[in-house]
Design a protein around this nucleic acid. Structure first.
Length: 585
DNA sequence: ATCGTAGGCGCC
DNA sequence: AAAGGGCGCCTACGAT
């Protein structure tokens, strides 16, 4: 190991002992790595592989690494540096303030109460304006007016080792201010800090998921696709012929003489009307009721399924998103709403028919686990409703609720889910009154969230995530009056807020679980390859499968302990060791 | 031509 | 039983 690296490790070890709990890092592969404690002491390392340096320091002193954003996590994931403790400033910013968009200059401005309208514009926009930093030192990342210098934030931070070190130091300053803000946020600061740690680790996990991908048995995927839409067409013309053949199978049932585009919902609706099926839209669940009315309906529904494979999960999808036997997509740790993870390339909406193609590599297994009845258990935890907390001790929570309400299990389940989604009509309405009677704390919490949402207010999850209420003007106006429209917008906001409280909290618990699994299973060379809201898939050598299965269960207990405000809520996971995703018991 | 929106559907 | 919350991705279509 080169001398400067050894020196920096020694230096950092001393600082860590002296009380520097946070360690800033900024790195680029071309330039090196910048490190900082955050009280003015920096170190710039120009030689050596940045990721190797980080790995060596991580092993030596195990600090909580602080970085600005994903651009630092990505190269660490590529290099396989399994950093455990981190603080991602932009991820924490999204946690505290909500929304999906977040930028380094914006987060900095917010932290320092700087007016957002004086945010420095990118590019050349400012050339003709009076420069707020006229004559100032361009090597200082902060302008005299307090904003970050755009030349730095747009990439100049990586220009030299010294700048990397200054940038790392600034990240620590930002993280410290974020921690201070938590003290006055209105939520429990300990709890929010804990969420910040988990969310930051989840963002790093997302960088790793993006790099690793999901193992795919490509020949099996091709077989499934061929079953649905035929063999891979050699050219565009052949693809066109195949598509026409699929269309004709449906149109054979249609009234003759009609020129119908099956991909045009208006055409389809008109066609259905001509065979006596009158529907407001042509969604599958609606057409299901009319299956017996005419053979056209069944043919259309079958066509739609094949069309889904052909267009979204067909040969093009395979060649574009599967490389080296892995389905690769972009992962992000929190969406713009309640904070669930998102993934592209179909990773989060792979049709069940394709799941046999998701297969462990040879000599490996998947260890798969999903959380059972996660939403009502989360509702019990965040509301502290004693009756609902008691219901979580059962494997089947809904059965207990049904017994208490004196209704059928299905009715109870629909009612509980409906209460969390905002459904208020139908047969669940009567059971809803039963819920309000038997679980007043839980239902009261949901109703107060809905009221906040209806009034246009933000809701805050138990972990401290702010979910910003939308101010959408584009809700469809069918020509009725403004009052009616305002009422519909308010109702939609109420449903959104009601759900966000639960969906957001469930996402928090899930991420704590996932990053705990990641931490506890790295020594087995196990890799999380899929996160699906309440389901985890870990890829590992077959010899370690049973051990990882145990870890998934233990990690859930640990995660619940760290996350749940309510000691007595029981969370359950269904775990299995499998070769293919479709092998689930 | 390029963009945003809506209908539709996959998953949770 | 009813059709509610989130996301990504496809197509067609109208506005720019």
């Amino acid at each position: 190991m080169p001398d400067p690296v050894q020196r920096s490790i020694t230096w950092l070890a001393e600082q860590a002992v002296a009380g520097g709990e946070l360690l800033g890092v900024a790195l680029t592969s071309g330039v090196g790595v910048g490190l900082a404690i955050g009280d003015g002491r920096r170190i710039a390392v120009a030689t050596g592989d940045p990721a190797a340096i980080v790995a060596a320091i991580d092993a030596a002193i195990g600090p909580r690494w602080v970085w600005w954003h994903r651009e630092t996590a990505d190269p660490l994931a590529v290099a396989g540096v399994g950093v455990q403790r981190c603080w991602d400033v932009l991820t924490v910013h999204r946690l505290l303030h909500g929304g999906w968009r977040a930028s380094v200059p914006g987060a900095w401005a917010r932290l320092h109460d700087l007016p957002l309208d004086s945010l420095p514009a990118m590019g050349q926009l400012g050339l003709l304006d009076v420069h707020p930093d006229e004559g100032a030192d361009p090597d200082d990342p902060v302008r005299p007016d307090g904003h970050l210098r755009p030349e730095w934030t747009s990439g100049g931070w990586a220009a030299s080792p010294d700048r990397l070190a200054a940038w790392a130091e600034l990240a620590v300053v930002a993280a410290r201010r974020q921690a201070e803000q938590m003290l006055t946020s209105g939520s429990d600061p300990q709890r929010v800090r804990s969420t910040a740690h988990a969310e930051s680790a989840a963002e790093l996990l997302c960088a790793e998921l993006t790099v690793h991908g999901l193992p795919i048995d490509v020949p099996e995927a091709e077989r499934i696709i061929a079953d649905a839409v035929g063999p891979r067409p050699p050219d565009e013309a052949a693809a066109d012929v195949a598509r026409r053949a699929r269309d004709d199978a449906v149109l054979a049932h249609a009234p003759i003489g009609a020129r119908i585009d099956l991909r045009n919902p208006n055409d389809v609706r008109a066609m259905l009307r001509r065979v006596g099926v009158d529907v407001p839209d042509t969604r599958a669940w609606r057409l299901e009721h009319h299956r017996d009315a005419h053979p056209l309906v069944g043919a259309l529904l079958t066509w739609r399924k094949a069309e889904r494979i052909a267009t979204t999960y067909g040969y093009r999808w395979l060649t574009e998103h599967v490389r080296d036997g892995r389905l690769r997509g972009e992962w992000s740790s929190s969406d713009g709403a309640a904070g669930r993870m998102t993934a592209s390339s179909g990773l989060h909406n792979l049709p069940a028919e394709l799941r046999p193609a998701v297969a462990a590599e040879s000599g490996h297994v998947f260890v798969r686990a999903d959380l059972g009845q996660i939403e009502p258990r989360v509702l019990a935890a965040v509301s502290g409703d004693p009756a609902l907390v008691a219901a979580t001790t059962a494997d089947d929570l809904y059965q207990g609720v049904a017994t208490r309400l004196g209704v059928a299990r299905d009715v109870a389940k629909v009612a509980v889910l409906g209460a969390m989604y905002g459904a208020t009509t139908g047969t669940s309405a009567q059971a809803l009154r039963g819920l309000e009677r038997e679980y007043p704390m839980a239902m009261g919490l949901l109703e107060s969230a809905a009221a906040t949402g209806r009034a246009g207010g933000d809701v805050v999850t138990i972990g401290g995530r702010r979910v910003r209420m939308w101010t959408d003007e584009t809700v469809d106006d069918t020509g009725r009056g403004d009052i009616d429209r305002a009422r519909r917008v308010a109702a939609a906001r109420g449903r959104f807020a009601r759900n966000a409280l639960i969906q957001g909290a469930a996402a928090e618990l899930f991420k704590v679980w996932a990053v705990t699994v990641r931490a506890r299973a790295t020594h087995l060379d196990a890799r999380i390859v899929l996160c699906l809201h309440d389901e985890l898939i870990v890829h590992v050598d077959e010899s370690a499968g049973p051990r990882v299965a145990d870890i998934l269960v233990e990690a859930l207990g640990e995660a619940a302990h760290r996350w749940s405000p309510e000691r007595d809520v029981r969370f359950v996971a269904d775990v299995s060791v499998i070769r293919r995703w479709s092998d689930v018991a």
